[in-house]
Design a protein around this nucleic acid. Structure first.
Lengths: 187, 187
DNA sequence: TCAATATAGTTTCGACTCGAAACTATAAAT
DNA sequence: ATTTATAGTTTCGAGTCGAAACTATATTGA
């Protein structure tokens, strides 16, 4: 029953993405890519990360990125330390498209209409579901730094990533990281 | 925030559909088509209904259906009353594929793990969200007969559809109908 | 240190999606 | 009986998608 609902909402979302993206000659997967890039941290804005997030092949993603780049929505930047790595930066134009389209108005309006209490319940329940899926997938949780086992508080303004050995700001820890690892729970 | 979660779950679902479908040479949209056909009623198993449900164009759907048919998962049947209309029937093979793949195990397992109370809250909250989306879309709600304004109870075993003038069984009213219309609420 | 191996990304191919527009066929309306 | 509407198909071009071969850079290790 819940799966029916998820499946339906997923189709609604995809239809909206097609509709919104269509105005700019974009496909649904382009919108999903752009949206991911707007939510991920500075270690996770690479073709490989997009590939893992969407669970496609790197060849497929490479082609889609070429299209999105050709429309002037992202820009490629070679990493300074590792010249194999490319960072995908959303352009000003890309940000405008994204701001107009995501979330699609169908969802922002529907969510606005919902009672606050129902929204709070929905958020908590979805969080439980996502965590269960992440556990089930047992790798690649693609969540925000704040909920990662490697994230350590330093003071009230900074945190520290035990994996990349990099400092993280309060803004940083709200971004999605490809290296995100679930906090271990003993059961 | 809730939108982030929905977007993530939607990507997880699509990835699972690709994975499960891939074993049979099927694409994600093929899985969604098959799943829809397994959940819809006898008035709604047509190419036009699939088109409206997925919000694609009829040309696109026509081609996808040809592929799904060529793999022996559905069969086309011309309607007896209106020879323009085609009914899409899932074959035994199609049913087997569907039973193996939908819901994908990632979701059935994750849902199994969730506490009953959380599940109940999730279901209620998702229902509210879907209803809000249906209202926002103001047409094409694609929901089960039971929640349609045209559905009238006759006795404890049968109902009656005021639109198609057809009797509906208790099983029937749990299937998705393309003519589904929201019960009007005065606000 | 230099060769083997691993990693990040691109390219190419073939099957398929997707929208748009032209098309066929049947039914309904006038 | 002729329009008009509806259901579905076909064709075209751009793009997705996976698989496999490819380039380029980093890392490993003998």
């Amino acid at each position: 029953m819940i799966f029916n609902q998820i499946e339906r909402i997923s189709n609604l979302l995809r239809a909206e993405e097609r509709k919104e993206g269509g105005e700019y000659g974009l496909q649904a997967v382009h919108m999903e890519t752009l949206y991911y890039l707007s939510k991920c941290n500075r270690f996770s804005d690479t073709p490989a990360s997009v590939t893992e997030y969407l669970q496609l092949t790197k060849g497929t993603v490479s082609q889609s990125l070429r299209v999105v780049e050709s429309k002037g929505l992202i820009k490629k930047q070679t990493d300074a330390c590792d010249r194999r790595v490319i960072h995908l930066k959303i352009t000003a134009r890309g940000k405008r498209v994204l701001a107009n389209s995501m979330p699609p108005s169908l969802f922002s309006n529907a969510l606005e209409e919902m009672p606050l209490e129902t929204k709070a319940q929905l958020q908590t329940a979805l969080d439980t579901l996502i965590k269960a899926c992440q556990k089930e997938n047992n790798s690649k949780s693609f969540d925000v730094c704040g909920s990662c086992r490697y994230c350590q508080p330093v003071d009230d303004k900074t945190h520290f990533c035990g994996l990349t050995k990099q400092p993280l700001s309060n803004d940083d820890i709200q971004l999605i990281c490809r290296e995100h690892t679930l906090i271990q729970t003993n059961e």
